[in-house]
């Protein structure tokens, strides 16, 4: 429902090729990129490589989905990278067999560790959200502070050391698979489907779009703006916690320096996906495509043997191009 609304106004109804390019630009760019990569490299379309791209995209994709909620509600969450580290470390400390890093009585069942990790992420988000909603401090500032504080807490908690030797049960969320599909991809797909449902089919989703589109109108219409603001940060925090645990599970140990600068890739995916930083306009499917585009690009450049430094430059160009596309679209409206 929201899909078409967000995509354009009356001017875009007609099948003008330029309008189509604006509207589906990212999808087209994504498709073109895939076709080109498939032509130049035989391995690109192999099942193994596709699953590999999806696995590599999963963590950024999950962070970007959480970020989509926050940005749709007119906020920004710069703290997700640090929350990745903090939640990963805390959860790992409950699921490690290393006697030096273990919480007394451990290792605990993976399910408990995961719940705690989600709770840590949600708690960081709740602090962000509460300060934003209650005291009206700009979310840029609040989450910048959390970016610093959560990283510091992770270092304090782990005394600056990694938490190694995670239990098999915990590692399953990074290394396991379901019917041949890697577990991170399964989790990513699940998160996406739930987020899609929430933003497009639930009452809360309507409230997020209303608060981001016009908080005054939302207030007058009886929507609790503070509740919505708090909630989107809790969602973003909890998903960052999830991503942090997946990262630790994949590598087998949780690092205090994990997730540095991850917020930037998450924001990039959201922006490339066409969500407006001004709030109220955007789609989670766009974010999915944005995250996949970044993932496929990195993968393709790897396959072609392009130096990773170039990848960063190309990503930069992509972000600006996506925003320029978006600007020309909103001018038409």
């Amino acid at each position: 429902m929201q899909e078409r609304v967000a995509a354009g106004g009356p001017a875009l109804r007609r099948a003008d090729p330029r309008d189509l390019a604006r509207r589906y630009g990212i999808l087209i760019a994504f498709a073109v990129l895939c076709v080109v990569l498939a032509l130049v490299n035989d391995n690109f379309l192999s099942t193994r490589n596709i699953l590999n791209v999806l696995r590599q995209t999963a963590i950024n994709g999950i962070l970007a989905i959480g970020m989509t909620f926050v940005i749709l509600a007119r906020g920004i969450d710069l703290s997700v990278g640090s929350v990745v580290a903090l939640a990963g470390i805390v959860a790992a400390s409950l699921a490690t067999t290393s006697s030096t890093a273990m919480v007394a009585g451990g290792p605990y069942p993976a399910a408990l560790a995961i719940l705690v990790g989600l709770a840590v992420g949600a708690a960081c988000g709740a602090v962000n959200g509460a300060i934003v909603a209650r005291f009206n401090v700009p979310s840029f500032v609040v989450t910048l502070a959390m970016l610093s504080a959560a990283r510091g807490l992770a270092l304090l908690y782990a005394e600056g050391r990694p938490v190694p030797a995670l239990t098999e049960g915990f590692r399953a969320m990074g290394t396991g698979s379901v019917l041949g599909v890697p577990m991170p991809v399964v989790i990513f797909a699940g998160v996406f489907l739930v987020a899609w449902w929430v933003l497009n089919q639930s009452r809360f989703g309507r409230q997020v779009y209303a608060v981001g589109g016009n908080p005054h109108a939302a207030t007058v219409s009886g929507i609790s703006v503070p509740f919505v603001r708090l909630s989107v940060f809790v969602i973003s925090g909890a998903l960052a916690g999830l991503a942090g645990m997946m990262l630790a599970a994949r590598t087998g140990s949780a690092l205090t320096q994990a997730g540095i600068a991850y917020e930037l890739d998450a924001i990039a995916a959201v922006v490339i996906g066409g969500t407006s930083l001004a709030g109220g306009v955007g789609r989670v499917t766009g974010t999915l495509i944005g995250a996949l585009l970044i993932g496929v690009m990195n993968n393709g450049l790897d396959l072609m043997g392009v130096e990773s430094y170039y990848q960063q430059v190309i990503k930069g160009v992509l972000i600006v191009a996506a925003v320029m596309l978006d600007q020309s679209r909103s001018r038409r409206d």
Partner: peptide, 21 residues
Amino acid sequence: KGSGLVLSQSVRANIAMAGLE
């Protein structure tokens, strides 16, 4: 425009906004 409507949303979404319950 300031407090009545969400201009970035559809007619339908605006009509529904106060009666979501």
